[in-house]
Structures are given as C-alpha cells and as structure tokens.
Simulated assay, not measured.
Amino acid sequence: MKVGFIGTGSMGSILIEALILSGALNPEQIVATNRTIEKTERLAAAYPKLQIAHSNIDVARSCSIIFLCIKPAEYKTVIDDIKGEAGPECIVVSITSPVMVKQLEGLLNSKIVKVIPSITNYVFSGATLCVYGERMGEDDIELIEKLLSPISAPIRIDERHTRICSDLSSCGPAFLAYFIQKYIEVAVQETGISKDDATRLACEMALGTGKLLTAGGFTPEALQERVAVPGGITAEGLRIMEKELCGLFSQLIHTTHAKYEEDLEKVESRFFGTSVD
C-alpha cells in the first residue's frame, strides 16, 4: 500500500512523522509533494526511503490513499490535477475542515473521507475526527481507522459538528497551552518562583490531569470534587474561576463558529461554486 501526501506543511509533516515513528507506515510506503518542494526534501532527508513526487499527478498515479494537507485556496488546483488519476477505488482524505465531503464527492470519483487531526497526534495521543463519505465501505473505514489508530483515537463525528469537535480536539491544545502560559506568568510575577520551576510544575500537572481524565476514569466534575475540599483553598479558587470565566467559553465558541462560517462561504463561492445543505 502506498499512501500519498499532497502538502507537507505543518500538519502534513506532523502526520507523516507520526505515522512513521509509530510504525503505522514505513517511509517507503509514503509518496509526498508540496508546492515548496524543499519542505518535502527535508522530510526525505530525515526518512531516506520516503519518496518525493514532483507533481500532484505523480502522487495520484502511485497511491491508493491520498491525504490532502492543503489550504482551501489550493483545492481547485489540486483537484484539477488529480481527478483524472484518482479513480473509484482511491481513498482521498481531506484534513481541511471547511471543505465538505459532499463538495469533494461532487468533484472526484474517489471515496472521500474528512479527517481532522490534532497536534497531539505527534505524540501518539488525542483524537482524529473522521467523517466518511457515502462511497466508503466498511472495509475502507476499517483501513483508515487502522492507519490512524497508532497515533490517535479515531472518532466518527457528524459533519455538522465539525467546528465544535475541532474546537475541543484540535484548537483545544492551543487554548489549554495559553491558559497554562498565563498561569505560569502570573505565578512568576506574583511570587518570585522561577519560570523554569513554574513551567515544569504546570506541565507535569497538565500531563497528570490528562491521564486522570482518560486512563484514570475521572470526569472533569468528579476530579474537581475529589480535589476541592469544601471550604478549602482549591474550592475558593474554583469559586473565583466560575465567577470570572463563566462567559468566556461562550464567547470562544461564538468566535470560532463565526470564523468557520466565514471560511465555509469562501470555500463554496470561490473554489467550488456550490452550497452545501
């Protein structure tokens, strides 16, 4: 099996490296290309058996699975390149959230999947969100999830919920890292603790909390109840957070959804000329 990657920017590179380092794919199974070919050459230098393709057509000709790790503005060009080569048995995997499965099914004869990865996949953790097109059979779905399982938990979602699921799984690491960053900065400013010590403590805390909320079987609510003794320090801190942060998360979701709707409209009007129900 040959797996192609069109686009080896930030997320494309993360996926390729994670799949190789986890053992899900061997470098010789991967064919990759990029508009700036030097990015692909750097990957091939790190993984010498990875094959560099010098065109999108070459990827489509040689691969049974093709990952499109590109921006919405690039879809028209890429699809025009590959549609003559990506046949009915080919699985095309888009990782771009505002590009809809039905849109791609209307432009390609291939089987279509939308997969939304996360930076956490680089350490073989977190989720990959999966939306399967109508042409995907159970064997095809099993193949994709077998490929993704070594680096993530593949989770099937309704495409209508792409944005909120992405907020939680893909944007979430950046949001959580921002919270931790600000917590560290204030700890240093207010108490004089060294930044190195505060960073190590906060990051180890985040790691342990993640394990408690997954392997440990705790829900967020149960974890708070276990730590916060009534009338104690943690309970007082939670009271302040409830008061000050209550509206923040609604604003966050409204903002990300508004940007997503804007991106959907741009994709529909500029690159596909269609609207999706």
Rank of each mutant, 00 (worst) to 15 (best):
V123N: 02
F124P: 00
S125D: 11
T128A: 03
C130Q: 03
C130A: 02
V131D: 02
G133C: 06
R135N: 12
G137H: 11
I141G: 02
E142K: 15
E142I: 01
L143V: 05
I144W: 04
E145R: 13
K146G: 04
L148H: 04
L148R: 09
P150M: 04
I151R: 05
I155L: 14
I155M: 08
I157P: 01
D158I: 06
E159H: 06
R160T: 03
H161L: 12
L168H: 04
F175A: 12
Y178P: 00
E185G: 01
A187C: 13
V188K: 11
T191K: 12
D196V: 06
D197R: 07
D197Q: 10
D197Y: 00
A198G: 06
T199W: 03
L201V: 13
E204V: 08
M205W: 07
A206N: 05
L207E: 12
G208W: 00
T209P: 08
G210K: 07
L213N: 07
T214N: 11
A215F: 06
G217N: 10
T219G: 02
A222K: 13
A222Y: 00
A222C: 03
Q224D: 04
E225K: 14
V227C: 12
A228H: 10
V229T: 15
G232D: 08
I233Q: 04
I233N: 06
G237E: 05
L238T: 08
I240G: 00
I240N: 01
M241F: 13
L245W: 13
C246V: 01
C246I: 01
C246K: 15
L248K: 09
L248G: 14
